[in-house]
Design a protein around this nucleic acid. Structure first.
Lengths: 336, 336
DNA sequence: TTGTACGCGTTATCAA
DNA sequence: TTGATAACGCGTACAA
């Protein structure tokens, strides 16, 4: 074995201390750059540690210190790029601050989400950022019982819990007003059907639906608000119920749904926006590649990630995390 | 405090043992369902544990057992949905087997990738799956020094290391043959320029380039193989150098690049495939929303994730992980 | 069936 | 400047 060669044997403070003829405490002082050690001793120990390929045992360290420098991130999936963008942004921010990320997926399943939280808690993560599919007082109490800072993104869990997102209500209302200003006589609101056993009554869905309804009711339109699932919307298109003469716009609760509807419309030979209007929500990166450009609601994803991380970090350090509502913007595409 | 109420105080074997008037060993037998304990004792202990809201301390457990039931996943980013799809698939597979995922991003930076690996090693993950941006014998030796199973996906690291992917060479050659069969007289191959400081000579890029070159050289075409970066390709489009009369196809090393080129062509009013052909590689889910349908190379992402996980799992359990080459398929879209 | 004692690798406190 | 020792929470081998 040559000097400097990387070795695969597990080397701990113990081996180093024996070789150097010092105590564990001194090895610790050298490795972790603590004061109260002779420079020469430190140099000698560090040299040996390097030769042996010493690697700190983070589990042992965390057990001793109580801190893991890790935050948990729980999102429904990575398929919807809203979540993968969010996860990536949080990852980068965390890393800059010396933190790392444990990623868990809930699949829009409330039980899986709870299991994820249990595990993160058992792993002693320092904090958790989640787009929660659970919510309400009892869930909030449960989170509190974790004795770990938890901040939510997008889906508000309760009034008292730190939350970062946009004003979904106003954003949707603004979008609907924009649609109405274009002379549409009817707007159908489409939400995502996530399948059996999956959570459907998400906070941000509700806020968006309310924004839609209020915008409609405040308008001169006589057509009542209509909220349907994406499945139902497709069925309506097939039955011809969607286009009954009135100038109609299909407003989707998120881009993901809007893209699917756009495909369905294309398949059926229905022109957008000539025959029917379409709007989304999120302004996903992938919209860049979709023609026609979707009219949607944009907001700064990077800042959401940053603020969410800042918020957990505050709570980790004993300060109040606090909620932040970020600004939104209507992206005037070509589908309305 | 009511019975059954969730409590936030940290509760360990010690508290439970004191309350129940038994030893730590007995608490362990009850909690971890070990034999050699009186059913009544067990029931009593479990009841108390439940009341107190006991949660296992996974760090302590891992320190004692040496196993974390966690695998590390290192990918460049989550923006390219190839990676987010992969991460999600691995996540699900791991979870089904009782494993969890620690996610790290390398940003196509070889140093960041090494740091990620160091951390995963220090966290004592049981295994690692990565789309490596480093490679070669010395890197392979470094991985071996981690004393942790590492299998690579897509980018092969060395001949001896377990790897899961497709035959990039044949896949690209097949795609090029398909393009040639459509009467194209020239094919330009475009790779991704990941920016300064980022890795560019990836294994799969190289394999695809070779497949491209060999297909061209085996053809009747007199035009020499031309490999350029996406930046350079855009410049060529502006200078008009790309379309000089010959029937040309732009073959991209991945869908991500192809989509960007497609946008560029659209912006410049160049019709696809009428004026120029275009192919991608990966068959990303998001292609579903892009018109015209991109001609590309498809492969089963779920199976790649499954096989990769199966391979690490094998190595974790002391068996040889082994490499697997999965099948690919040319997706005949509308861009050639 | 139950209890004891040691080890996992590190940090932290107190003496020396 | 250094060393010894007790945590941290749990697993495990052995003894009772």
């Amino acid at each position: 074995m040559r000097a400097g060669e990387i070795v695969s044997v597990k080397v701990t403070f113990k081996e180093i201390s024996e070789i150097c003829g010092v105590s564990l405490g001194t090895v610790d002082r050298a490795i972790n750059n603590r004061p109260g050690i002779h420079p020469e001793t430190r140099a000698r120990i560090l040299e040996v540690a390097k030769q042996l390929g010493y690697r700190p045992h983070l589990l042992a360290r965390s057990l001793a210190t109580g801190s893991t420098m890790t935050i948990g991130v729980v999102v429904p999936n990575l398929t919807n790029s809203f979540f993968s963008e969010l996860a990536e942004v949080i990852q980068k921010g965390a890393r800059r601050a010396g933190y790392y990320v444990y990623l868990m997926l809930s699949e829009y399943d409330s039980v899986e989400e709870m299991e994820s939280l249990e595990r993160l808690r058992s792993l002693n993560v320092d904090g958790i950022i989640m787009t929660s599919v659970n919510r309400g007082r009892s869930f909030d109490a449960y989170l509190t019982s974790l004795a770990t800072p938890v901040v939510s993104v997008s889906n508000r869990i309760s009034k008292r819990r730190a939350w970062v997102g946009i004003d979904d209500y106003s954003a949707t209302r603004d979008a609907m007003r924009f649609v109405l200003s274009k002379g549409y006589e009817r707007i159908i609101f489409v939400t995502e059907n996530r399948g059996p056993g999956k959570v459907s009554n998400l906070y941000c869905d509700e806020r968006r639906i309310r924004g839609y309804k209020d915008a409609l009711q405040a308008s001169a339109l006589d057509a009542p608000p209509t909220v349907v699932s994406d499945d139902a919307m497709l069925a309506m298109l097939d039955s011809g119920g969607a286009l009954d003469g009135k100038r109609t716009c299909i407003a989707c609760s998120c881009d993901e749904v809007a893209l699917n509807i756009l495909n369905a419309l294309r398949t059926r030979g229905i022109a957008v926006p000539a025959e029917v209007g379409l709007t989304g929500f999120d302004n996903l990166d992938q919209l860049e590649y979709v023609v026609p450009r979707l009219t949607t609601v944009a907001y700064p994803m990077e800042r959401i990630g940053e603020e969410a991380f800042k918020s957990v970090l505050d709570e980790i350090n004993g300060r109040a995390g606090g909620s932040r509502t970020l600004e939104h913007l209507i992206v005037e595409g070509e589908t309305v």
